[in-house]
Design a protein around this nucleic acid. Structure first.
Lengths: 154, 154
DNA sequence: TCTGAGTCGTTGAAGGTTCAACTATGGACG
DNA sequence: CGTCCATAGTTGAACCTTCAACGACTCAGA
């Protein structure tokens, strides 16, 4: 708030964040490439769908929840539909909407590949932090999300 | 280490991290798009170069420091060279190497645009966290980086 | 000095994301 | 109702990153 520049501590934290962020995404992405049939982003789509009682989520909610653009979500879901992991249908009561639904194949894939995904998250994030660090990390990133929403930068 | 699954706290922290990470990158990226002539990635290249006493860094060191692939670095630097922000030359003593150097134009760009960049980092990260949270965030991501290096996943 | 393994950086193609433009539907308000 | 603006989602092109293959150079050891 006060000055324009970052002090040494702030600068250090920002640098460490940038580097860790890049390496973490890279490391987990490599695990997916090596051992799973779906990318990290596609995996997250499967998770969101599986968490819905109907195993289906509207495109815009999906985009919102994943913090992805609508366009990106369209492309991702189309590719997944081509591979039989999800299917698209109408939203009851709103003819603009598209409902994305988990297929049998999508559910099987999620169940089969979840352990490897979780193992990667543990190996590169959860297991290298203390419970306190992990909690603080979550709270910090939650504050970031709140500010972004506040600014309408979504 | 112990079990295969994440408990509720771990799951929550991971989710918050994923969402905050996406939104933070997006928010700062938008600031760059709107008010600066260089992207966040290009800006980081300029910063690294400016921090060297000679205002030049070898391609591989640049790639390493930014946690980018060598290929990505080549493409990024080529685009920046086309715009006159950096220039490439030989590394004294190793004819395999390429030395990337800040140009006058690159230095001017960095000086002119740093305030807007820093303002974005403050607005979306530094200012929404307590000093403790920010420090812990940095330490946590540093631990992630250490694990990735340990695994040779770079 | 020759050989072989490793490092450095580039290249072009393939794949994913972003952006702007577009169609279609919904909802508020006269 | 009819107009107007907002929302939902798609499309294709431009752009960036990734990947595999490559040429060039270095270094260590026989």
């Amino acid at each position: 708030m006060s000055t324009v520049w970052l002090d040494a501590d702030q600068q250090l934290a920002w640098r460490r964040y940038l580097e860790g962020r890049a390496r973490l995404h890279d490391a987990i992405g490599r695990e997916h490439d090596a051992h799973l049939s779906v990318s990290l982003e596609e995996y997250e789509v499967l998770v969101r769908l599986s968490e819905s009682p109907t195993e289906s989520v509207r495109m815009s909610s999906l985009a919102d929840g994943l913090a992805h653009s609508r366009s990106r979500t369209t492309h991702t879901v189309r590719r997944m539909e081509d591979r039989g992991l999800v299917r698209r249908g109408p939203v009851p009561g709103d003819r603009r909407g598209v409902l994305c639904t988990l297929t049998e194949e999508g559910r099987r894939t999620l169940v089969a590949e979840a352990p490897a995904h979780v193992a990667a998250v543990r190996r590169y994030l959860v297991d290298v932090l203390t419970p306190d660090q992990l909690r603080t990390l979550g709270e910090a990133m939650d504050a970031v999300t709140a500010r972004c929403r506040e600014d309408g930068v979504c």
